[in-house]
């Protein structure tokens, strides 16, 4: 409406304009409120503990700092855990090329290989190994593979992905209490089991050809997972072609601590003993063949296995496996900024 020359803009138009402004402001405020709401309903923190070990995170950051550093990426179980894994003998695994990375497990007489090309889409396998519920976990962003034993109170415990990350690492939740567990730490940072630490066991990062040669009787996890996925495709990069996220570049997500002593994606063998941690560049173990060291009062030996193309760390006193895992340097340091480093 063109204002008539001798009367100025009509009162009605003015009121309309005011109403539009007011309505827009209210709508904008409402949208902002919705967008900045903390969407993940965090279970209430409590001090109750359970079996496993009680600690404060045994790393650089306390549990509250970690809980405050959670970054939401996908919905819960947007990356679905495998709850009904199917295995076949090595001779039937025609979907695996020789150079594909696999994560090998020998436990209680069972020998299993978990291919990276399957785990990259699921990150968690709730498995039963030798009659015991055990969970095998893999976080593609931090290059870490860790197995966990069940808790005494929850012998049938299973895990899923929250869809969120801490220090760019997979944040799991347990289906018994809904507590949140960063994979590398294995200590719950939120929920009823906050402060409880899972007992971890190592898997060996090898290749299909090497693992199968060393363990001809191995079973291997198949792509028959109950989900439709592009197995063989990898959304992050490639280990076989050494490119993409795995090969180079900075982390994609914020980390609490960083250090440029090594390239962020350089693989270190991280060892934990008591409240102390040690990082040994994997290449160093390959070069030297064997590295003897000491950590937190425990004597350790890191050995290179040519046959499996990987490293293993044992306690020298009893020969048992130490608590060790391959990790990208940035991720190890993010959780353990006080880590000792062997160079």
């Amino acid at each position: 409406m063109i204002p008539t020359p001798d009367r100025g803009p009509s009162r009605r138009q003015m009121l309309k304009g005011a109403a539009v402004l007011g309505g827009s402001a209210a709508l904008a405020g409402l949208l902002w409120q919705t967008a900045t709401d903390d969407d993940s309903a965090s279970p209430s923190a409590s001090d109750s503990g359970s079996s496993g070990t009680q600690d404060d995170g045994a790393g650089g950051s306390d549990l509250d700092t970690l809980a405050g550093a959670v970054v939401g990426v996908l919905g819960q179980d947007g990356i679905p855990a495998i709850d009904e894994p199917t295995f076949v003998p090595a001779s039937e695994a025609d979907f695996l090329a020789d150079d594909e990375p696999v994560f090998g497990l020998v436990r209680g007489g069972e020998v299993r290989a978990y291919p990276q090309l399957v785990l990259v889409w699921h990150e968690i396998v709730n498995d039963v190994v030798h009659g015991v519920r055990r969970v095998v976990t893999y976080c593609p962003l931090t290059g870490t593979v860790i197995g966990f034993e069940p808790l005494r109170e929850f012998p049938d415990i299973t895990f899923g992905t929250t869809g969120s990350l801490v220090n760019s690492n997979l944040l799991m939740y347990d289906r018994a209490t809904g507590s949140h567990w960063p994979q590398v730490l294995g200590t719950a940072i939120r929920g009823e089991l906050r402060g409880t630490r899972l007992d971890a066991f190592p898997l060996l990062w090898s290749t299909w050809a090497a693992w199968r040669a060393a363990h001809p009787d191995t079973q291997v996890l198949t792509t028959d997972t109950g989900f439709v996925r592009d197995y063989g495709g990898d959304p992050y990069g490639s280990y076989t072609d050494d490119n993409g996220y795995y090969a180079e570049g900075d982390p994609w997500f914020p980390v609490l601590n960083s250090d440029d002593r090594f390239d962020p994606k350089e693989v270190v063998v991280g060892v934990r003993s008591g409240n102390a941690q040690l990082a040994i560049p994997k290449e160093l173990i390959r070069e030297r063949g064997r590295v003897d060291t000491e950590l937190g009062g425990t004597r350790l030996r890191a050995t290179w296995h040519d046959a499996l193309d990987t490293a293993q760390v044992v306690r020298r006193d009893d020969g048992d496996p130490a608590d060790f895992l391959d990790a990208m340097w940035f991720a190890w340091y993010a959780f353990y900024p006080d880590t000792k480093v062997l160079a």
Partner: peptide
Amino acid sequence: MNRGTHPAVRALAGIGDAWDG
């Protein structure tokens, strides 16, 4: 000729016109 209408009033009315449009 407009009486000396306040620019704010004119602006509001302009918004009202835009809404109609």
